[in-house]
């Protein structure tokens, strides 16, 4: 179904971090941007669609006024709001927001760092753009920070802190279908597997808290009112977001899942795990009966690679890209 394309070389290898690949399509310029985190550096590549031009940029984790630091980056992700696109970096020290090409840092939020290191690590992880003007970021304490982002300029404000999780946030996702009929806007996940489903607004409203089973949920997506969650046991579960009813359970991978992605136009689901496999699934939702189905379409073994990032490159799922621990390339696959 898919065949391997020429890989994109990156300046330094990918670290083993959840969801360690972000993809942004810039249609007017026929470009695709990729970011991959390596320890305290973000590798950024812009690739032209004809496959001829690649340009590289590396972002260091420069933290506000601290001139240099070796703080490790946990995640880098593009946030697409209707009015603007921002590149958000989360690290051990805080949250950085850049213009989408990585040229200018427009906002910096410092985390509360204790004087002496504590047993509980401090970091931010989990990034999502929600509706018109919100960017949400998770923190190791379990808090979810909601930032209100103006359509331009750097006047970004921390507008709310959501305190429902007790464990470190792992990932979060906003509704990706673009449908305005869906009630739930955001789902957040944590180390214990608890999922919180939110309605956005001036005050975010908790719609549902889906219990975990003390198994880490490392990657989560929200599509047409269905939560798709990937776990440390290699399972994928589908839940109806608002009611929390489980719709499907898949024994998908033999190891910890690191990344999920959905192609919103086609309902294709991509999963990547430490077992060196990437799999493509097809989701079918039947709104009349509130039911969801999932079907296996395709698997690819990236030999001897623990996969840490897997993302579709377009809304139809025509192509996808994969990164793995210790690998200095982004591997791409395209439908035959």
């Amino acid at each position: 179904m898919y065949h391997k394309e020429k890989s994109i070389q990156i300046k330094s290898s990918a670290s083993a971090l959840y969801n360690n690949l972000s993809v942004l399509r810039i249609a007017p310029r026929s470009l695709t941007y990729f970011t991959v985190v390596h320890a305290n550096v973000v590798n950024m590549v812009s690739a032209s669609w004809d496959g001829l031009n690649f340009s590289h940029r590396q972002l260091q984790s420069k933290e506000g006024n601290i001139a240099a630091s070796s703080s490790l980056i946990m995640q880098a992700s593009w946030c697409v709001l209707p009015s603007r696109e921002l590149l958000v970096l989360t690290s051990q020290k805080g949250i950085q927001m850049y213009e989408s090409d990585g040229s200018i840092m427009v906002y910096w939020h410092a985390l509360d760092i204790p004087e002496t290191p504590t047993a509980q690590a401090v970091f931010a992880r989990g990034i999502a753009a929600v509706r018109e003007n919100y960017i949400c970021v998770g923190v190791s304490s379990g808090s979810v920070l909601v930032f209100d982002v103006p359509s331009k300029g750097s006047n970004i404000m921390l507008s709310e802190v959501l305190e429902e999780h007790r464990e470190s946030i792992t990932d979060m996702a906003s509704e990706c279908s673009g449908s305005l009929e869906c009630i739930a806007d955001l789902v957040t996940a944590d180390d214990s597997g608890i999922l919180c489903v939110w309605k956005s607004g001036e005050d975010f409203q908790l719609l549902n808290k889906i219990p975990g089973f003390d198994v880490c949920c490392s990657s989560v997506k929200l599509w047409k009112g269905t939560v798709v969650a990937g776990y440390g046991t290699g399972q994928i579960r589908l839940y109806e977001a608002v009611t929390g009813i489980v719709q499907a359970e898949v024994n998908a991978h033999a190891r910890w899942i690191y990344s999920l992605d959905i192609a919103p136009f086609s309902g294709l689901l991509l999963s990547g795990a430490e077992d060196s496999l990437v799999r493509v699934w097809h989701l079918t939702l039947t709104p009349e009966t509130n039911s969801a189905e999932i079907e296996h379409l395709y698997s690819e073994c990236v030999t001897d690679t623990q996969i840490c990032g897997a993302k579709f490159c377009d809304g139809d799922g025509y192509a996808f890209a994969v990164t793995g621990y210790d690998l200095s390339e982004i591997i791409r696959y395209t439908q035959a």
């Binding site: 359970e249 898949v250 024994n251 998908a252």
Partner: peptide
Amino acid sequence: VPGLIRIF
């Protein structure tokens, strides 16, 4: 072991 899909 991977390989099973269950629908509810």
